[in-house]
């Protein structure tokens, strides 16, 4: 605590900087730019980039509701709009295929893997930041390195490991391997959050006789809720996005996750398959987009936090 204060006192520059940056809410010199100029240098490029970024989703959504005869005929019907939307593709997907089952698998795997990872990361991050056992710094560094190990160099040996442990082709193969991607990330993120919680609170609790476990559960966790939400959402998204492990470790159709099932089971020779493929891609993205819409700020802070710390 004292060294924290001393550091603050010794470093007036940083506090000064922070206060000026925070107090300066004006828009700087942007009043110098007039409208025509802003139109060309700002709105036009921004508009182009946005259109390129969003067009695939528009095309995805549009394809999934177009009737078959309009799907491939661009000459007779305008390809960019449809006046008679149909839910045929979506209905086919939901009632004639295992799609609901795949959605359920993905949800189950993502939820379990995220829950396990957050639990393990909270303990690890707290220990590294606050217990500061011998070598905690090195462990923190090792966890950062683990974050940088990509799944695509691990899946071959992991497939033999998964086979040895008897997990092959079960949901547990995914529930237990996804945390290796998630734990390093969320530990790193939570370490950053825990560092911002004042030491003094913990010291008071220690004097009052709280054990470390009580401090963690009753003081640190309630204060770190924004961080926990960020970590949870980001982990959930990563699970949903994961492909290579699910492709390698799961072979029976009933256990597949949405991304793998769409690529392996939905792609058939049908020339009109695009409708149901796009519907599958759209419905598969919707849960994440909805989640994202509710927690944009948390999501952004997770992403930038993980990079900045």
């Amino acid at each position: 605590m004292t060294d924290l204060l001393a550091q603050k006192a010794a470093d007036p520059k940083s506090t000064l900087n922070a206060s000026t940056a925070a107090a300066d809410h004006s828009d700087g010199m942007s009043y110098l730019n007039n409208l025509p100029r802003r139109l060309v240098t700002l709105y036009l490029p921004l508009g182009i980039i946005l259109v390129v970024l969003l067009f695939p989703f528009y095309w995805m959504a549009l394809t999934s509701i177009k009737p078959d005869e309009q799907l491939l005929d661009f000459e007779k019907y305008s390809p960019f709009w449809t006046w008679n939307p149909t839910f045929k593709h979506i209905a086919k997907l939901l009632f004639d295929t295992d799609y609901p089952r795949w959605l359920w698998n993905t949800m189950l795997v993502a939820t379990c893997a995220t829950a396990i990872s957050i639990g393990a990361s909270v303990l690890a991050a707290y220990a590294i930041v606050r217990l500061r056992y011998k070598g905690a710094q090195w462990v923190g560094g090792a966890i950062f390195l683990a974050y940088l190990v990509p799944p695509s160099i691990l899946f071959i040996p992991l497939s033999t490991v998964v086979f040895q442990y008897g997990l092959f082709d079960t949901p547990f193969a995914l529930i237990l391997t996804y945390p290796t991607i998630l734990i390093p990330f969320s530990t790193w993120l939570l370490m950053g959050y825990f560092k911002t919680i004042p030491f003094e609170l913990e010291e008071c609790a220690l004097i009052d006789g709280a054990s470390r476990w009580q401090i963690l559960v009753k003081i640190v966790l309630p204060l770190a809720i924004p961080g926990l939400i960020s970590a949870f959402i980001f982990c959930f998204t990563l699970c949903w996005n994961e492909f290579i492990y699910a492709l390698t470790f799961i072979s029976s159709t009933q256990y597949k996750t949405v991304p793998v099932a769409i690529v392996t089971a939905l792609v058939d020779g049908d020339i009109y398959r695009w409708g149901s493929l796009m519907a599958g891609a759209m419905i598969g993205s919707l849960p994440l987009v909805v989640l994202y819409a509710f927690f944009v700020e948390h999501y952004v802070s997770a992403m930038t936090g993980a990079v900045k710390e």
Binding site: F57, F243, V260, G280, A281, G284, S285, L288
Partner: peptide, 12 residues
Amino acid sequence: PFIVPTVLSAIA
């Protein structure tokens, strides 16, 4: 584009 699963946007 970053949050939609890569596989699904790749299909698009």
